[in-house]
């Protein structure tokens, strides 16, 4: 059967890891926001803005890592807008988030036209190139699948570990988690719930934007209008799938990416000749919903997620 061949090939898993990378950044970003108690639906727009900002910065002459930094800062600025409205003002997190997605997306397209008024197709940049980790990349299957990726992918996995350590091993992480569980407990210790939540949303939004920038700086080498294509919404689901834990969320991202890589390959097999290709495109989403249902029934949602905190109220 073709399926087994596909699942045992290094190139399949290499593609899965590559497709997972932007999801990992953005999922971690969303996870940080939600752990602090804020649902950030601005994620889709922030990814679009990040993809554009990183790319245009590199096109303008910055080095690739400079582009990543510009994307991060762009995301953080948008995160600051979100958290200002949703935390101290306590506005509906749904409305603020969707509004921010619309705003960031439109603003990106507007800026694109202002910066590049004459072009018919977007200019290309030199993107991140794969870097083969010495020794490790020579391992069978795992080597070419995991250790021959671009530096930004490695950064994503390192970031996941870092996020887990900060969340579970530092006073800061404890305060973030407590803000998402019971903000009164945080306030009773004289800590500022507002500052903690705003900080978490701002940093988390920065990670989302880097996830977007991965598309223009590593996966592709240019910017297209529809390139984010709902990845942000997938990340919202991945956070639930991962039960708000960084490790499981990364696993979910890789799993979804594997489904995606699989459907592309299945289209080229014998079945692909019979079944309409739209069915294959649907496959990763369908399987993700299924996995979500199976995995997240016992997940412990942060108790104060989407609950605005007003000092002095019970």
């Amino acid at each position: 059967m073709d399926l087994l061949d596909i699942l045992l090939s290094a190139s399949f898993w290499a593609a899965a890891i590559r497709i997972a990378s932007p999801l990992i950044f953005a999922t971690l970003g969303e996870l940080i926001c939600e752990r602090a108690g804020v649902l950030n639906l601005g994620i889709e727009g922030i990814m679009v803005a990040g993809a554009f900002a990183g790319w245009i910065a590199v096109w303008g002459g910055l080095p690739l890592w400079g582009g990543v930094a510009v994307a991060m800062l762009t995301g953080m600025m948008l995160g600051l807008v979100h958290s200002t409205l949703s935390v101290p003002f306590g506005l509906s997190q749904h409305v603020v988030g969707i509004g921010l997605t619309l705003l960031a997306t439109s603003l990106t397209f507007y800026t694109y036209r202002v910066v590049l008024p004459e072009v018919s197709s977007p200019p290309k940049i030199t993107a991140f190139q794969p870097y083969e980790v010495p020794f490790l990349s020579e391992l069978p299957l795992i080597g070419p699948a995991i250790f021959a990726q671009t530096p930004l992918t490695y950064a994503g996995f390192i970031l996941a570990g870092l996020t887990a350590v900060i969340l579970y091993r530092t006073p800061l992480g404890l305060a973030v988690r407590a803000a998402g569980e019971n903000p009164s407990a945080v306030a009773a210790q004289g800590l500022s719930v507002t500052a903690i939540r705003m900080g978490a949303v701002t940093v988390g939004s920065g990670f989302m934007a880097v996830g977007g920038a991965f598309l223009t700086l590593s996966a592709f080498d240019s910017f297209f209008f529809d390139m984010v294509n709902g990845r942000g919404w997938i990340c919202i689901a991945l956070v639930v799938f991962g039960a708000w834990k960084p490790g499981k969320a990364v696993l979910g991202a890789v799993l979804f990416a594997a489904f995606d890589a699989l459907q592309i390959r299945l289209q080229q097999t014998g079945i692909g000749a019979v079944v309409p290709y739209q069915v294959f495109l649907m496959l990763p989403y369908f399987l993700s919903i299924l996995a979500l249902v199976l995995m997240s029934r016992r997940a412990e949602i942060p108790a104060a997620l989407m609950v605005p905190f007003n000092k002095g109220e019970r």
């Binding site: 530092t170 006073p171 404890l174 305060a175 945080v186 210790q189 004289g190």
Partner: peptide, 12 residues
């Protein structure tokens, strides 16, 4: 331990 150490302290 929540809030005992300063938020910039490295570990718990």
């Amino acid at each position: 331990v929540l809030g005992v150490d300063h938020l910039t302290a490295p570990t718990l």
